[in-house]
Each structure stands twice: as C-alpha cells, then as structure tokens.
Simulated scan of single mutants.
Amino acid sequence: MESKKLRQNWVGQIFSSPGGKASRGVSILISKNMPFKSSNVHVDQEGRYVIVSGLLQNEMVTLVNVYAPNSLQSKFFTSLCPKILQSIEGPLIIGGDFNSVCDPIHPLPSDKNISAALRDFQSELGITDVWRLVHPDAREYSFYSGAHNSYQG
C-alpha cells in the first residue's frame, strides 16, 4: 500500500485515499508529537479527497486534503461540498491541489465556470485562501501549465 511509503519517524497517524497506479491519491499525516484522536474519517474511493474530524490538542477540528480532477471540476466541487459540510466538527482546514484558481486576477483560459464553481465552493464552506488574502496582488505561482499556457497559484 502506498501509505506505507509515507511512514517516517515523525509520523504518528496516516489517513489516506489512494489513487490509481500513478495518478491521484491524497493523505493527511499527523505528527506523533501532535495529540490527535480521530472521530470521523471519510475516504474517497477514487483518491480525490480524505476528510478527517477529531480532537487536535483537545479541540475539535476537521482536516481535508483534496486532489481535484483536471476536468469536470465544477461537478467535483459541487459533489464534494455537501460531504465536507456533513463532516465539519470545529474549525475547517483544507489543503491540496484544486487544479484551478478562483480569483479573477489570475484566470485560466479554460471554462470560467470552473473558477465560479471554486468560488462557490469557498463561499459555501466559508473558507478563505489565506495565501491570497495576505498577498492579494502578488504575481507568484506554484505551477506553470504548458497545456493551458498559464500560471497557477
């Protein structure tokens, strides 16, 4: 199993949603020095997300890792949102690869419905892109897509 490759000296718990042979798959790793007791784990069978709720240092929290598909993102975000809403216990922390951007400063040349779906996803969950909040005008990106001829951040 791929999650065994993630086991390191510092890792105490691994919550994984493995993908296919060389695609997809997400994990949430919890340090063995971080007191965490899971109460609810939802694992996507296609390796697109993992949702874990539990006590983190005696506070309820929900952790989510997402790997959105390269296509059909609107459908993906629309179906993922209720699953997250059903699982929320305490503050919500989401990370991952959304394969899209939601702010109009850096639009992708692809279908604008994708960006709108991601903005709706953020709005429905009440979440904020913290990096973009702190750096609203920064022209820094995490990835260049040759297929889309655009930078993504």
Rank of each mutant, 00 (worst) to 15 (best):
S31I: 02
S31H: 06
S31C: 11
S31Y: 03
N33G: 08
N33C: 12
N33F: 15
M34V: 14
M34R: 08
P35C: 08
P35F: 10
P35L: 09
P35K: 08
P35W: 08
F36D: 05
F36H: 07
F36R: 04
F36I: 07
F36L: 06
S38L: 04
S39H: 08
S39Q: 13
S39N: 10
S39V: 15
N40C: 11
N40S: 13
N40K: 15
V41T: 10
V41E: 11
V41S: 06
V41C: 09
V41N: 09
V41G: 06
V41K: 07
V41Q: 08
H42R: 13
H42D: 11
H42Q: 14
H42I: 13
V43C: 10
V43K: 03
D44G: 09
D44R: 01
D44C: 11
D44Q: 05
Q45R: 10
Q45H: 13
Q45G: 09
Q45N: 06
Q45T: 06
Q45K: 10
Q45D: 14
Q45Y: 07
Q45F: 05
E46R: 05
E46G: 07
E46I: 01
E46P: 04
G47F: 02
G47V: 01
R48E: 09
Y49P: 03
Y49N: 04
Y49H: 14
Y49D: 06
V50Y: 04
V50G: 11
V50K: 02
I51E: 02
I51L: 05
I51S: 07
V52D: 00
V52M: 00
S53G: 15
S53P: 04
S53F: 00
G54K: 04
G54Y: 01
G54W: 00
G54V: 02
L55V: 03
L55S: 15
L55D: 12
L55A: 07
L55W: 12
L55E: 12
L55M: 13
L56V: 09
L56N: 12
L56A: 15
Q57N: 13
Q57A: 09
N58T: 13
N58C: 06
N58D: 15
N58W: 06
N58V: 12
E59C: 11
M60H: 13
M60K: 15
V61M: 14
T62L: 01
T62S: 04
